[in-house]
Design a protein around this nucleic acid. Structure first.
Lengths: 213, 213
DNA sequence: GTATTCATCCCCGAAAACAGGTATTTAAAA
DNA sequence: TTTTAAATACCTGTTTTCGGGGATGAATAC
């Protein structure tokens, strides 16, 4: 049984290349090609009865881009797979697409073999991402996690250290020549910032970080 | 200049042996021998002007024993050295004597050479204890320290663990199916027992002991 | 040059912790 | 068997923490 494909890309050259690859394979039936996402949306909306297996789309297109198109398709209940093919691969684009359940992502400079493999994989129900894309995605994820790493200011470290050394708010205020309200604020902020519940949590954090022994 | 000695021992055989050893040394002058401590006390009390350098005494004697005698001698201002010689060496006896500033302690089965060495050492102003006695004393000290080590009961460990896991008193009570008053008691006892000031201290202890990570 | 972060200070009310006891029952140890 | 230790529970206060706000000046970053 043939699979029905739709292709959206505003670069004629790339579109032709892709078509020539797909035409060597007898199992793919190109239903429709479009220059931007809006056309694809319209086509899908009209042909409600037609089985559409896969939409291959570029990211950068006039009017309705690939990101929007993918999101739109995944919001239908038609079980249409999506394969995004792009020239520029920013982490933001990849992130957004994966967040919206895209089925695959390739760079445009991919080889014929990889295109066919990606399409096959996706039609088989699995996801396909090129190695480069996976790397970009993960690298970005790690960096974001790093950003999420809680950074305490000098003062906060001072305060949490003294807290873990069993001093009360008032005592810490006296030692640092600050108002007790200030220390209270620090304690409160630390509890929120470090996502703990109380002194015990603060103390554990301080020990883990080596602020106290 | 000869040193003046007094010997107290209710075992004639040992007394004779000791005398024979000391008589081979021309520098010791045996002032007096007694069968129990009371006689020594009386002798010392009466002869206030006489220089008495050393009292060698047994521990187990009728009426006034060696421990009492040592204590009594050390309470005078006569600077009289004491050497205790005993058959049975319990840590309690050794402890008590050292506590009361005894100058030496030997086992009765010591060799002639050790006796002489002990006496010389003591008369020279230093303390002398046989190796065995030192070992018994230290071993006992270590054990007592171990006893002093704070031991938490099973329940206390449970409670301090939960405290360090940032649960409140009420939450811990609920988890252990106990009254919140009970947990409050535990928290309070722990603070006292572990000599800390607050939750932070309890948490640090729990971490050090590996109750939480 | 404006937005954000840092350091600082303040208020309030509820909840929890802290300090200082006492008391009962049970189990273990001396 | 008497004493001691452990586990449990309660009472009365005071202090501290916690969670929710808001505010301001100075420095830093974009």
């Amino acid at each position: 049984m043939k699979h029905n494909l739709i292709i959206a890309d505003d670069h004629k050259m790339f579109l032709d290349g892709l078509l020539s690859i797909l035409n060597t394979e007898s199992s793919y039936n190109i239903l429709y090609t479009a220059k931007h996402g809006g056309h694809v949306q319209k086509y899908i909306s009209i042909n409600t009865e037609e089985k559409i297996d896969l939409v291959i789309t570029d990211v950068t297109m006039p009017e309705v881009d690939g990101i929007t198109l993918n999101k739109w398709i995944k919001n239908t209940d038609r079980n249409i797979k999506t394969l995004v093919v792009s020239m520029h691969n920013t982490p933001e684009i990849i992130d957004s697409l994966i967040e919206n359940n895209v089925d695959g992502y390739l760079q445009k400079n991919a080889q014929k073999e990889e295109f066919l493999k990606a399409i096959e994989t996706i039609l088989g129900g699995e996801k396909y991402f090129s190695k480069e894309i996976k790397d970009i995605y993960l690298q970005n994820k790690f960096e974001k996690n790093k950003e999420k790493e809680i950074k305490l200011t000098k003062r906060e470290v001072e305060v949490i250290s003294l807290i873990a050394e069993e001093f009360t708010t008032q005592e810490i205020a006296d030692q640092l020549f600050l108002s007790k309200h200030t220390i209270e604020s620090y304690r409160k902020n630390l509890i929120t910032k470090l996502n703990v519940r109380n002194l015990a949590g603060l103390t554990k954090y301080a020990i883990k970080k080596g602020y106290v022994s």
